[in-house]
Computed example of a mutant assay.
Amino acid sequence: MPVSAPTPLTVPASGLRDYCAAIFADAGVPSADAALVADSLVEANLRGVDSHGVSRVPIYIERIQRGITNPVPDVKVVAEDGGALLIDGDNGMGQVVTQRAVDLAFDRLPTQRVVSAGIRNSNHYGSGAYFARRAAERGAAVFLYGNAPSTMVAWGGRERFLGTNPYTFAVPAGNRAPIVLDMATSVVARGKIILASQLGQDIPEGWAVDATGRPTTDAAAALEGSVLPFGGPKGYGIALMIEIMAAVLSGASVGPEVGDLYDELERPQGVGAFLSITDITAFQPTSSFGERMSDMIDAIKLTAAESGEVLVPGELEERISEIRSREGIPLQPAVAAALKQVAERPFPFDAQSKIA
């Protein structure tokens, strides 16, 4: 007999954001940084990317408490030449380090017009869409690559070497929301498998193999095995490109050197990233670029099949965000229980929580 899925709580984004920010502040994270990290996680939930949402709060807190993530990092530029920056994250929270890198790049954008930053000595930064989307809203085209713990085999390989190595791109789109492409180079982000395991749910076929290399739908077995690259050798090639730019070039940990967020609680992750920001006005006025983007999107949508619709990257997430901003974020009981366990304050929601 099938087991029914647990009923999630429905909680307001603002209350969840404040609660998570307070948890981080109680753990010693400065208030502005605590608000930033909480906002990035809640926004992932708002956009329907629950695998990168507040379910990550407990492991972030545990790593701070164990002294393997620095809650008060001194993020600084260690080398600079023209529009090229090398940034050391001082083992800070990934969101804090990444946002600081974005700000440092924008400081230089008026004179350099294109700025690239290598980032080393960082940690898991959550959803790359959070940073890229905001940069696009400031009038820039953005690429953000990050490496990750070894959870994926190289194409034709036997042992895990590469991470799911996320790739994020965002660009302003005139009077529309920015186009935002945020994707793992695996068939699926490993965070979705982690979330399925936490909820006791199976995963679809084709997502992963177990420790023996056999296909599996068991989330726990998949976590012991390996996720698979999307598109076979093509996904592997892109993941390798990201590893080179985010880790080899920046001086960050490479491949199996990267510490696992959940399973290696005795050492920093050493995550790397590569950020490239281009000022749109270096090529054409923002207004004309926006018009061209709108025209292109309209033309793409006209190609839809009779029974379908063509979406641009980020559009579905925008729609989900509109709904959840209005109706609330569904919070799984297992995630709520984990938040209660790490918090030093009462849980402000109950089964009747709704948007006011």
Rank of each mutant, 00 (worst) to 15 (best):
E224W: 02
A220L: 08
I329G: 02
V57I: 07
R319A: 09
E205V: 05
S287Y: 13
D26R: 15
Y60L: 15
D210W: 00
A304S: 12
Y125E: 07
A34T: 00
G200N: 12
M293I: 01
R158K: 14
E309M: 06
R324N: 11
L275C: 06
V227T: 13
G231D: 01
E317L: 01
G272M: 02
G128H: 04
V254I: 15
R100Q: 11
P149Q: 01
F349R: 01
F131E: 07
A299H: 13
G255P: 02
G146F: 07
G200T: 04
P256V: 11
T212K: 15
L199P: 10
M93I: 15
V180N: 04
L249R: 13
G163Y: 09
N147R: 08
V102Y: 14
S116L: 09
S288Q: 15
D182S: 00
D107P: 01
R158P: 02
N121F: 09
S325C: 01
P73V: 05
V72P: 00
Q112W: 08
M293D: 08
R160N: 13
G314H: 02
Q201A: 13
G191Q: 08
L261K: 02
E344M: 14
A22N: 11
A252I: 07
I355W: 09
R267P: 04
P268D: 09
A34E: 07
V227Y: 05
L181D: 09
R66F: 06
G89P: 00
V188H: 09
T98F: 04
S186P: 12
V142E: 10
E306A: 10
V335H: 03
A25C: 06
L302E: 15
V187D: 10
W207N: 04
Y145G: 01
A27Q: 10
D18Q: 14
A305T: 12
G67C: 08
I179A: 14
R133H: 07
F274W: 15
R47P: 04
E205Q: 12
V114Q: 14
C20N: 09
L144W: 06
Q99L: 12
L16V: 10
G156W: 04
A44K: 05
V97Q: 06
V72Y: 00
G126H: 01
A184F: 09
